[in-house]
């Protein structure tokens, strides 16, 4: 099942610090919405608001027409900025956490999560402890853990920010067909404009704190082509520069380019 996601006039403050202000956004069922913006503009906070981990001070967020905190928590799976893999579990048991929480047996959870291990190039690392995995593998396990929950909405917070450029490009290329094939509605936070355009259907650029919408842009269709070809395509680079210019205007701190 696919669900829609929308926010109207969303604002949030921590004490005196206004982090988000009057934000409108919308993702259609099955769409990937990219969120870019400078550090500290409230991207992570927004994901937590969407996921029902917090309630916004102002405005409303609806998933599939439902507004309650619990209703949103029920539908969203969150991949935090740190991978948050639990060191006392193997990679496989980390990936199967959602199933265990649903009351499935250890064996069932392992069998089901194990299928995805094979498909996502993690075969052979089922019994590894998180600290034995490379950064790219850790992110993949953390993503699988999110996917295994079978929730309608995936909230991904800078999933590749901690990786080196080559691994990041590899994982972007790996993630694209996965997001396309499944009918999840996805909100992808990143501070990398290129990553946002490559992986999303639409991109929302936020201003520096308090985060407001600086621009909203449809992303070019990227599926089916090698990543290198896509990101060097003139249509793509044009939009990337346009988005960067917009971000630069609305938030002086990001001047300096895509990072």
């Amino acid at each position: 099942m696919t669900v829609s996601l929308s926010g109207r006039g969303v604002g949030h403050s921590f004490g005196d610090l206004t982090v988000l202000d009057g934000l409108d956004f919308e993702a259609r069922p099955g769409e990937v919405l990219g969120l870019v913006g400078p550090s500290g503009c409230g991207k992570s906070t927004l994901l937590e608001l969407i996921g029902g981990l917090r309630q916004p001070d102002r405005g409303r967020i609806e998933i599939d027409g439902k507004e309650g905190e619990d209703a949103r928590l029920e539908r969203c799976a969150w991949m935090p900025q740190k991978d948050c893999l639990l060191p006392w579990y193997t990679a496989l048991d980390n990936a199967g956490l959602a199933l265990r929480n649903l009351g499935r047996s250890k064996g069932e959870a392992r069998a089901e999560a194990g299928l995805l291990f094979d498909r996502f190039g993690l075969a052979g690392f089922e019994q590894s402890r998180p600290d034995q995995l490379s950064g790219g593998m850790r992110q993949r396990v953390a993503f699988l853990r999110t996917l295994v929950s079978r929730k309608d909405v995936l909230l991904l917070d800078e999933p590749f920010a901690s990786l080196d450029a080559i691994t990041r490009a590899e994982l972007q290329e790996w993630l694209l067909p996965v997001l396309d094939e499944k009918d999840h509605t996805v909100v992808l936070v990143t501070h990398d404009v290129e990553e946002a355009l490559y992986l999303s259907d639409a991109v929302l650029a936020l201003t520096s704190r308090p985060g407001r919408v600086a621009a909203s842009m449809k992303a070019p269709s990227t599926t089916g082509f090698p990543r290198e070809q896509v990101v060097t395509d003139p249509g793509f680079t044009e939009r990337r520069e346009e988005l960067l210019a917009l971000l630069r205007q609305s938030s002086p701190s990001i001047a300096g380019g895509a990072r």
Binding site: C76, W78, C84, N101, S149, K151
Partner: peptide, 18 residues
Amino acid sequence: VDPDSVKMLRTLYAGKSQ
């Protein structure tokens, strides 16, 4: 405990005892 780990588990169906 890292509060993010707790939040992550909450979105993966975990209740207080889990």
